[in-house]
Design a binder for these strands. Structure first.
Lengths: 151, 151
DNA sequence: TTAAAAGTCTATTAGTACTATAGACTTTAT
DNA sequence: ATAAAGTCTATAGTACTAATAGACTTTTAA
């Protein structure tokens, strides 16, 4: 049930872009800076951000002073969306996938025990990941920071 | 977030063993029969069942009339346990794993947004998978069967 | 007592997906 | 014109997954 490095790096980068924006303005950050701050191989990160851009989650600007920024408000980008783009379907087995259904080959899908159980897992994953936006993440982080300061 | 074939096959076999038992008695079934009924490559299944046996979830008997059966009541074997044995930790990233923790390398773990979000995911997975026993699965299957009959 | 049925164990291969790197190209600001 | 930045495609390396192979041990029963 592991997240790939691609997925992990992509999420880290998106969270960083969401967190760095001063007062709602989307931050513009260069690949190199994200790569250095998050210790992600630059060339690999480049591919990941490009994928996210082509999927419509990021905008970019070339040339001097360019970089990446979120294409939408952080509140409108969910973790589930990012993960699906980079790692594919959330479903543990294809026969319960919403975005990439395929029959699993059991004699009767409707009464397949594995399918019933994995359906629950998929739904729970989707609920959490589609229900958590980048804004939710940054809010939670700053909350934890504050509670650590005062503690 | 995909389940490996190893994990899938192992779960299918365990569910079959739990389902086939007549009135609480654990069913004794041969590799070959499981392999045929579930369409799992026999030699691969062999390895999987051996792993599950060495982990204490199955018992086996060699020779004529032998085969595999559950080592414990179906109510005491959780899907989470089976998956951990065959596929490793449930956690999407190692820094939130209970059974195989490793630092993820972020500057501050306590305030890492990714870690906070993935912690939720891990907990939810663990809640479902550790909270669902083979008995729960068989009960649910027979419930669905009945409702399909009467429908 | 021996043949057949069944599991055990270890090694090896084939395939695939993940991770990362390379390098040539385009756009933009100054 | 030049330097800073993103774009795009190809490819290499590696690790893991899935599957196969084969020789061995235990047990039952004819």
């Amino acid at each position: 049930m592991r997240l790939s490095k691609r997925g992990e790096y992509g999420l880290r980068a998106m969270i960083m872009l969401a967190t760095s924006g001063p007062g709602g303005h989307p931050a513009v950050i260069q690949i190199r800076e994200i790569s250095e701050r998050e210790k992600i191989p630059a060339k690999f990160l480049e591919q990941i951000l490009l994928t996210l851009k082509n999927a419509g989650l990021l905008h970019s600007k070339m040339g001097v002073g360019g970089g990446y920024h979120l294409a939408k408000p952080a509140s409108e980008i969910s973790l589930g969306h990012i993960i699906r783009i980079l790692d594919g379907p959330l479903a543990p087995v294809k026969c319960v996938s919403q975005m990439a259904y395929e029959p699993c080959g059991c004699p009767d899908e409707e009464t397949c025990g594995l399918r019933l159980a994995m359906g629950d897992v998929r739904n729970s994953l989707a609920k959490i990941l589609d229900g958590t936006s980048l804004e939710d993440v940054t809010r939670r982080v700053s909350k934890v920071r504050k509670s650590l300061k005062s503690g």
